[in-house]
Amino acid sequence: MKKLALILVAFSIVATFAVRASAETLLRFNVWVPSLHFVVVKGYKPWAAKVEKATAGRVKIQFTTKSLGAPPRQFDLAKSGVADITWGVQGYTAGRFVSAEIGELPFNGDQAEALSVALWRTHNKYFAAADEYKGVKILGLHTHSPGQVMVNSRKVEALADLKGVKIRVVNPATSQILKLFHGVPVRAPAPKTYELFSKGIIDGSFMTADGVLAFKLGKFAKYYVEAPGGLYNTSFFVAMNPGKWNGISASDRKAIEAVSGEALAKQFGAAWDDSDRRGQKLVRGSAKVTSIKGAGLAALKTKLAFLEKDWFKKVKAIGIDGPAALKYMRAQAAAYK
């Protein structure tokens, strides 16, 4: 009897752990930026903690120690299930996510948190019906702080000085801007920037101040040209494999959505703003900064107006009212508190 009792107790313990294990979902989040990058420390991980708390520990997120694929492959990694959750840059696959190009336009705003929340609201109001993210569950969208241009080995104190200068481009908007000023484009993801500078492959890069800090580019930032609201910006997505999403209970999906979407945009945007403030100090301590303003800024806005017009045409083809969407997004960002 004593032996039988011990067997029953052991069976009960195993069964309890089995039930507990079956009730938990472990999601693998692919990481392709340095593990100490602020978006990991102040974006991914706090959000993952909120997911775990919101689901009472039933859904947990584990981060990869090595990327499962190159930065441009992030959407497809989530779609195919190679990763459960990915964070990616729409502009790394130019032309695939046309609606997201609204977030890349110049002069959109100076605060990543405000613009990120505005982008998410605009997506829901104007873009969701176009279903450009078919094949994944979109958990959030956001932008970074205003993007400018930094140069190392060539004297650049105005955008006109970019002629013949090799510059890393980020997305369609930066490619078009560089083309307008007769620069030489080099396409590569942000984590490659240090290597490209070190090997002399590029003279400069479109970059945020926080990027100068995060990717340790201070020694390469000899010249820095900036404009209010940014010469460009970048849109990001957080995507989840639909099979994994549907495998989670309805109540836990609802809980995850409550800490994602606008809440995720706010958190990731705030992380960018915080890092940007520190990056600005670094840039101003290492580079000669040229701020475009006054008549020069007005002339630049006129010169770059074609970027908005071109985007309006592209999204019209998929049933989106571009002028209304852009007006709405900028108004939402301006009114955000």
Results as ranks from 00 to 15, higher is better:
residue 1 M to T: 14
residue 2 K to I: 15
residue 6 L to V: 15
residue 10 A to T: 10
residue 11 F to D: 11
residue 15 A to V: 12
residue 16 T to V: 09
residue 17 F to M: 14
residue 18 A to W: 13
residue 23 A to N: 14
residue 25 T to F: 03
residue 27 L to Y: 02
residue 27 L to P: 09
residue 31 V to D: 09
residue 37 H to N: 04
residue 41 V to Q: 04
residue 41 V to S: 05
residue 44 Y to I: 07
residue 48 A to G: 12
residue 50 K to L: 15
residue 52 E to G: 12
residue 53 K to R: 10
residue 55 T to Y: 03
residue 55 T to F: 06
residue 55 T to I: 08
residue 58 R to V: 13
residue 58 R to F: 06
residue 63 F to W: 00
residue 66 K to V: 11
residue 70 A to C: 01
residue 72 P to L: 01
residue 77 L to M: 02
residue 77 L to V: 03
residue 77 L to S: 05
residue 77 L to E: 02
residue 80 S to M: 10
residue 81 G to R: 14
residue 88 G to D: 04
residue 92 Y to K: 08
residue 92 Y to A: 02
residue 94 A to D: 05
residue 95 G to E: 13
residue 95 G to N: 03
residue 96 R to G: 06
residue 100 A to S: 13
residue 101 E to R: 14
residue 111 Q to R: 07
residue 111 Q to K: 11
residue 112 A to Y: 05
residue 114 A to P: 08
residue 117 V to L: 13
residue 118 A to M: 10
residue 124 N to D: 08
residue 131 D to L: 07
residue 132 E to H: 01
residue 134 K to G: 00
residue 136 V to G: 09
residue 137 K to D: 03
residue 138 I to W: 05
residue 144 H to L: 13
residue 146 P to M: 04
residue 147 G to H: 01
residue 150 M to S: 09
residue 152 N to F: 12
residue 155 K to I: 06
residue 159 L to C: 14
residue 161 D to R: 01
residue 162 L to Y: 00
residue 164 G to E: 12
residue 166 K to L: 14
residue 169 V to S: 05
residue 170 V to G: 06
residue 170 V to H: 03
residue 174 T to P: 08
residue 175 S to V: 14
residue 175 S to C: 02
residue 175 S to R: 14
residue 177 I to Y: 00
residue 177 I to D: 12
residue 178 L to M: 06
residue 179 K to E: 11
residue 181 F to K: 11
residue 182 H to E: 14
residue 184 V to P: 07
residue 184 V to T: 09
residue 186 V to L: 02
residue 191 P to C: 08
residue 193 T to H: 05
residue 195 E to C: 01
residue 196 L to E: 05
residue 203 D to H: 11
residue 206 F to N: 09
residue 207 M to V: 14
residue 213 L to S: 04
residue 213 L to K: 15
residue 215 F to S: 00
residue 223 Y to R: 03
residue 225 V to K: 00
residue 227 A to K: 01
residue 228 P to Q: 04
residue 230 G to S: 05
residue 232 Y to F: 11
residue 234 T to A: 03
residue 234 T to R: 05
residue 237 F to V: 10
residue 239 A to L: 01
residue 242 P to Q: 05
residue 245 W to Q: 11
residue 246 N to W: 02
residue 248 I to T: 07
residue 254 K to P: 07
residue 254 K to D: 06
residue 255 A to C: 08
residue 264 L to D: 07
residue 265 A to M: 03
residue 266 K to Q: 00
residue 267 Q to A: 10
residue 268 F to K: 02
residue 270 A to Y: 05
residue 275 S to K: 11
residue 275 S to R: 08
residue 279 G to A: 02
residue 285 G to C: 08
residue 288 K to I: 03
residue 288 K to F: 09
residue 290 T to N: 05
residue 290 T to M: 01
residue 291 S to E: 06
residue 301 K to A: 11
residue 301 K to Q: 15
residue 303 K to H: 13
residue 305 A to C: 06
residue 308 E to L: 07
residue 314 K to E: 15
residue 320 I to C: 04
residue 321 D to Q: 07
residue 322 G to I: 06
residue 324 A to E: 09
residue 326 L to I: 14
residue 326 L to V: 15
residue 327 K to S: 01
residue 332 Q to L: 10
residue 332 Q to T: 08
residue 333 A to R: 03
